[in-house]
Structures are given as C-alpha cells and as structure tokens.
Write a protein that binds this DNA or RNA. Structure first.
Lengths: 347, 347
DNA sequence: TTTAGCACTCTTCCTCCGGGAGTGCTAAAT
DNA sequence: ATTTAGCACTCCCGGAGGAAGAGTGCTAAA
C-alpha cells in the first residue's frame, strides 16, 4: 500500500469512506470496529484513525465527532481501494434502451442529451456533457443556405450525426443557382475530411484557383475559408440538477447547497475538466478541493470521453457533492461513455 | 376600486406589497402608517388590514406577526395598483447592445438565449424562453443533406434566422445528384411559405405528380411530406438559476428553495405558461397559487411573446419566487420582448 | 370614524443544563 | 511491541425556561 498506509489502515479508511457515503454523518471508531467484524477494538481503530488524520486522509468536524474523509481521503479510496460495484441489469437495460431509441430517431445532440438525462437520474446526481469542437470530426456533407439578405448559413453534418452551423456575413449577391454549384463543389471536397482538414484543403484550393479565373469557385472557397476560420468555444449541458436536492447534508446547510448549485453554473471550468477527460480517453475523477477553482471546491466531477471510431467526440459525466458513491458512479459513467461510443460506431 | 376595496385600502395594500417585496419580512401596521406619512394611525391601518385579510389579499404567518400579501394580493396589486418603474438607461443600453451583437453574428437561437441570459441577470431572477414550433414561421430556404447511409437531414432556415432540423429515415439509395435536384425543386416551392403551408403544398404536388412519372420529383415530395409530418414539442430554456439563490427568504427555509428549484424543472408546465403568453401577445403574469400545478405554487412567471412581423416566434420571461419586484420586472420583460420583435423585424 | 391605550399572543433569542457520542491518554494485558 | 480496557474530557444537541420585542385585537374615548 502506497504512502505508508498499511493494509489495515487502508481497510479502515475504506470503511469510513463507505459509511460516510451512505450516511453523510461523521464515522466513529466503534462503528468501524463493528463493520470490520470486531477484529480490532475501537481503541485500536482510534489509533489508526489518528494516523490517517495526520496523513491528511481524514478530518474531524470538531473534537469528539467521528471522522469524515478529506479530498485526499476520497482520492486514495478511488485510486487504491475502490471495489467497483457491478451495474444492476435494470440500469444497463434502461441505458441501452435510451441509446437505441436515440440512435434511431434523434440527432447526435439529442441522443447525447437523452442518455445524459437518464444517467443523471440513475446516479441521482446532475449530469454534464460536452460535445467536442467538431474540428476533429469527419464530415458527411456540407450545405450553404441563404439565411438572410446578406448572410449565408453553412451547415455541416458530421459522420457522427452531429450538426454544426456557421453564419457567414455579407454575401448579398450570391444567387441561388450559384449557391447550388458551390454546394456541389464543396461537397466534393469535403466528404470524409475533418473540418480542420477541410479548412487546410480549402485554403490550398483557394491559392490554386487564383490563377485560373472562376468566379463561382473562388466565391465558394472564400466563403468556405471564412466559415471555417473560427471554431466555437464548445458548450456544456447540465441536466438533472434537481437530483441532488434531497441529499441529507443539504437539509440544514443551505450555504453548501448554494455553493454546489453555483458550481453547476461554472460552465467554463466544467468544460475544462470534461475536456481533459476527453483528451485522456480514460475516466477522470476530480474531487472537490482538487479542482482548479474554489467555486468547485464542494463538488466532484466524474467524466469520461466518448468517441466515434478513433476520433474524440465529447465527454459525458456526473457532477455532484464530493460525497458521492464512486463505486457505483464510476462504473456507471464508464458504461455510459462506452455505450455512446458504440452507438456512434454504428453511424 | 374594484372588489369593494376602497382607495385607502388599496394604498395600504400597495405599501404592504412593496415593503414585503423589498424586505421579505411580514409588514406591520406601524410600518405602513409611517410609509403613508402618518396620515392614518397604526390602529386605523390595523382595521384596514383586517379587512384586507378577510378579503383574501393578506395573510398572517402567525398571530402577531405582520401581514404578507397572498397570491390574490399580488394579483390585485399587479392588476390595479402597479406603478411601473421606468427602466434605468443602463439596463436599456445593455439589452440593446446584447441584441445588436446577437443580431450580427449569431443564429436566432443564440440571439434569444444571449438576451435571455442578460435579462436574467438584470432582473436577478431566472429567465425562461421558448421558441415556437416553427410551423407558423416563414421559410427562407430548405436543404436536404445526407446524414448517414440511410438517413437524410432536412434543414430549414426560417426568415427569422431560426434553424430547424428534421431527420428522415430510410432513404439509402438517393444519390448526391438527386439530392441536389430535389433541393432545388423544394426551394422553389418553399421560399416564403410557412412550414405548415409547405406541408399542404407538398401534399398537393404529390397528388398531382402521381400522374406524370418523375421519379426524382416524387421522391422529393414524399420525403418532404414525411419530414414535415410531425412537429416537435418545443423546448424550454432556463437560464440564470443561480440568480435567485441569494434571496433572503431562502436563508433559513431550505424546503422553499428546493421547491422553487424543482419548479424550474417543470418544463412542460412552464412551456404551457409561456405558450399562453405567446398566443395572447400581451404580457402575462402567473402568480404562484394561480399556476395549474402545485409544483409551481411558489413561483411566479412573467412572460411576453415576441414576433417576427405578424407571426409569433416565441415567448420570453422570468421565473422566480412569488415575491418579486413586479414594478421593475414587468417593464423589463416587456421591453425585452419588444426588443426581440424589433430585432427579428430587421432580419 | 378614528385613535390611544392596553392586554394578550407568538416568535425569537438568550442561557442553562443533562445526555450522548466520541475522542485521547494511560496503564494493564497479551 | 501491540492491543485493549478504562476513564476523564470535550463538544454537540435538544429541551426547558425566561425575557424582550413586535404586532395584534379590542375597548373606550375623542
């Protein structure tokens, strides 16, 4: 066992974490002793607890209350002690079903949000999703459409089913006919490329076309280049906020509830966390005090990326109070992310 | 003054409402007497208050606390006593600016949500928006795009700038070329019609085309008819939930906070309320207990429709605890809705 | 009809106190 | 050298009791 935590201490820590997760109350030495089958007396447990506290894994709300795990305590538990609870079949079924429904008749966005909502309810936490900037995704088709007298809308459908819009300003005098031609031309270029690759491609073509003079093509490329220039900052969806309201720790402590709810609004920080999970393609757990900003000090984020084939599509996860049942939540998030990856594989 | 409420009683009610809105505390006779310039003694005020309570406009949390307005009290205040506070220039400026920015470089959706977010912050309430089913909106252009091996995406851009997707299943063997032709044909039909009208038009064409045999056209129409058949249930966006967290009435009463937050999740009920505001094209105020479901018993919704030219586009408003400053909030919502209408008029 | 006066009601905020939970320490037991 | 029993101590929690304050309703006088 790492960090000078011997096996016995680790088991004590495990029981404290699990009891605290279940009850939201500080855990005393007597309780732990019982849970461990009386193999050790409360007094011994107390000694171990004192050690664990010294190492920073436990804290006491006040003298003569039990101990509660600190952020570091949860971290150690997750990294070294977690026994993954296997998912209940019913949960798996419901997730699969939601995904099947979604894949049939919804856009990629809808599919993801539907699954996310269900995940939130199953885990009794809020759920959180990001969709990656589509720069990395492969295109299925593109279309330029007249949006107003002087604006054109570029619609790009990714192979994942994700749909992306970009508004191009100041193109008053392109005719419908020309738009059609441009569409055909762009589609020829685009299919199978990523948006980023298309951007490069379009720029190259643009240079080449400068020589021969073809007004329409030049237009097409210039517009394309413009539309592809910027990529949005990405969005965060939070679903199922209400799921956390019944946690017992909020019954008296309004302040904490407010802090957690405010944390849900920290979209840009949440985005960074999920983005990291997406990049690593492994499940990521950020525990309260580990988070980069103070505002998220009371919440944990458990997230995992999902892909289409080899390319990252986004990240899905849960956000809620630090005291969450990681043994249940981590497999759940993992399964859900894999499910999305499977679903997108079928597209 | 209606309902047997004489002028004096009305003024008393007004002061009670306003004081309660400002302080979140029950209001006593002494306070009212002072506010009214000592014209009436506290004892007299007490008599009037007893009358108002009998009429159902006031309530006492317990004997010997002051009075607080009931739902009916707020209703009477809004209908008969409200002195609209004129907007602060700074607020107007910020709204205008947000709208100008949005109209320039964002889709209709984005524009509306941006304005909504700002509205929420200005009012210190949560804001809420719906976008109407686009059936009633006029089309600018449509495009069919290949979305996957056996699916096609219909993208419709409305004259408002609002973009609508419909997924059509089971069209594996339409070629890119055919799609282009179909696009051209549909666009010819569609421009300037509403989706509903297009639906009718397409069905008519479909009957006519049955006679002469043109495979592509028939395809186009069949697909069009299918895509247009259903119209989604409409969406509700809630922004700025965190704005209400600091209301003093929540400092001790967690239950009430939870109820209000849960109310924010009652999307379908909120939708109905906003839809009503959209239909009536006048500002609508729904006060707590008036609401159709118990879950919204603690919140008020203030909403107003916005249009593009003559056709309803959606509805925007605020949702928050019943105790809100209607004299400020109502003009604010009204202004915002008009602003959106103006913005969409420029499209 | 209004108002001053007054008794009454309730909440709120102290403080005090006992019970209980849990600890840390020490000394004995293994 | 560990483990454990015993014990004193600390701190939270809940209830009791009481004083202060706010506000009311009623009555009788202006």
């Amino acid at each position: 066992m790492a960090f000078g935590v011997d096996e016995r201490a680790a088991q004590v820590l495990r029981h404290i974490v699990e009891d605290y997760v279940a009850t939201a109350e500080p855990v005393g030495s007597r309780t732990v002793s019982k849970k461990m089958g009386q193999a050790l007396s409360p007094a011994t447990i107390r000694n171990i607890m004192a050690d664990l506290e010294e190492m920073g894994f436990l804290a006491q709300p006040h003298t003569s209350a039990g101990r509660i795990p600190t952020g570091a305590g949860f971290r150690f538990y997750i990294d070294h002690l977690l026994l993954r609870r296997s998912l209940v079949q019913g949960e798996v079924d419901r997730l699969n079903q939601a995904a099947q429904e979604g894949v049939g008749n919804a856009s990629a966005d809808e599919l993801v949000r539907q699954v996310s909502r269900l995940l939130a309810n199953l885990a009794c936490q809020a759920s959180v999703v990001i969709v990656s900037r589509p720069d990395e995704q492969r295109l299925r088709s593109v279309s330029l459409m007249r949006a107003s007298a002087d604006k054109i809308l570029l619609v790009a459908v990714m192979q994942s089913g994700y749909v992306q819009h970009r508004l191009i300003e100041g193109e008053p005098d392109v005719t419908a006919d020309e738009l059609e031609k441009i569409n055909a031309y762009l589609n020829g270029l685009a299919e199978g490329l990523t948006l980023a690759a298309l951007r490069v491609r379009v720029r190259a073509e643009l240079r080449r076309e400068k020589a021969r003079y073809d007004r329409v093509m030049h237009r097409a490329l210039a517009m394309g280049a413009r539309a592809l220039a910027d990529s949005g900052p990405g969005e965060v969806f939070v679903e199922g906020r209400a799921n956390i309201l019944d946690q017992p720790e909020f019954a008296e402590d309004v302040q904490r509830l407010k802090r957690v709810l405010r944390a849900f609004e920290e979209k840009s920080v949440i985005f960074r966390l999920l983005d990291r999970a997406m990049a690593s393609q492994a499940i990521q757990v950020s525990i309260g005090p580990e988070n980069p900003v103070e505002e998220l000090g009371d919440v944990s984020v458990v997230a995992s990326g999902y892909r289409q084939g080899p390319s990252a599509m986004g990240s899905i996860g849960l956000i809620g109070p630090v005291r969450m049942d990681y043994s249940r939540v981590i497999p759940l998030v993992e399964y859900t992310a894999n499910l999305l990856t499977t679903m997108f594989g079928q597209r």
